[in-house]
Design a protein around this nucleic acid. Structure first.
Lengths: 230, 230
DNA sequence: TAGATTGTTAATCGATTAACAATC
DNA sequence: TAGATTGTTAATCGATTAACAATC
């Protein structure tokens, strides 16, 4: 069996995206017989060579002249990524954030299953958000191991992050997606954390954008004096 | 003047992070006289060579034997990234998400200023979240140009994304950070969108984690049969 | 000055793209 | 078979790391 860690990180990330894509494709009405690397590439905005290279890591082959079988590819992606049909994850955050995430990011649609929520605001028996029980963060090591959860999404307040990571580590969760902006990585030894740093991303975008000053009167007042004139 | 677009994208992203870091450093009590590339590197978990290379793009020089002047470096970063002291951005999303983001990501702390909020749920004169007025999304082209906003954070529901991007484009916003998971990039021509794809990141993390099945009885039952055995 | 750290050139590493023989 | 598309090797591109002379 191929070792998933053999593929480069950049390919791993794209393979995850293909998994979402094929999941959507299979769920849609128009059941396509086969799909080519070019079609996938066009949909996702990458090159077709890259798609073929990525898919060649899977335990599956495309058919020259025809393309890839969607169902077969989806299964191969699932196996390769170590996903299950409804992959469980934990989410830790403020109650408001957990509720908001549910509508902005409907996890079921992507084949992901929020197995448990945790909030620092909850003390005793928390309520439910959607169908999912909300526990106090202190219960992380008690609840998670039984649910077979190995991945967590963290979107709590900044000052709760260290304790949250400690508890996740104790619960055996080795992989975390961090939405709370943490400048300095301060996770426990051996924990695999992906940081989505919203402030940094916004600042980087500022640089790429031609700067705009608050317009005085006319649309044409915004011409000269951009900070990054070449 | 150096052109910000000259630096590679990976450096730009790190420079944004340095900007956050120096902002925090200057705000803290212990006013450091100088800081070396090694110290910065250790704090942020990158190599010191990378820090020096990145900082060498700035209109500023470190002092051999001594390091960098925090205040000077902060200013140079601000200029280079095209930021202002309190850089304005717009946020578009569900009311719940906008409220939740405010506590998880306190933008002021990073020198960012949420100049306006927009929500598809709001019709007429929306309320306020914190100090910031909430407008209906339809008002984006009316409100934003006057505020000098060139960057937006989008965290609305999936079906509102195309219309939101259209309105942002109309308002002259060229740079967007997309938090709503959109598999296929479908932004207007020339718009610069950074995608933070939560589902894909979670799936990629699943692959890196040694898989765990729900434990039956003992802690030792989780041994063999990981999907990615080598 | 001596010690420390910068800025940059050269070497390495990794990922993407080009090209094409293999094959359905 | 002829046409189309795969899988992979070789070439390119870009980013990181190593090394070190310049210099405060």
């Amino acid at each position: 069996m191929t070792d998933a860690t053999r593929a480069p990180a950049s390919s791993m990330l794209r393979l995850s995206r293909y998994h979402c894509f094929f999941g959507e494709l299979l769920a849609s009405e128009d059941a396509v017989q086969r799909i080519t690397s070019r079609q996938i590439a066009d949909e996702l905005g990458v090159s077709d060579e890259t798609v073929r290279r990525d898919l060649s890591y899977l335990e599956m082959e495309g058919r020259p002249g025809a393309g890839y079988d969607p169902a077969e590819t989806y299964e191969a992606l699932e196996t390769f990524l170590g996903l299950s049909r409804s992959f469980p994850f934990a989410a830790i955050g403020t109650q408001g954030m957990l509720e908001a995430l549910r509508v902005v990011f409907p996890s079921e649609q992507f084949g992901l299953d929020p197995a448990a929520y945790f909030s620092a605001e909850v003390a005793g028996a928390g309520g439910r958000i959607g169908n999912v029980a909300v526990f106090p963060v202190a219960d992380i090591p008690v609840v998670l191991p039984d649910l077979g959860v190995s991945v967590a999404l963290v979107a709590c307040e900044q000052h709760d992050v260290p304790e949250t990571l400690r508890l996740l580590d104790e619960a055996g969760v080795r992989s975390v997606l961090m939405l709370t902006p943490m400048l300095r990585p301060q996770h426990p030894e051996g924990m695999n954390v992906t940081y989505f740093r919203i402030p940094c991303a916004l600042k980087a975008l500022a640089a790429s954008a031609p700067q705009k000053k608050p317009c005085c009167e006319t649309a044409s007042c915004c011409h000269g004096s951009t900070p990054a004139e070449s």
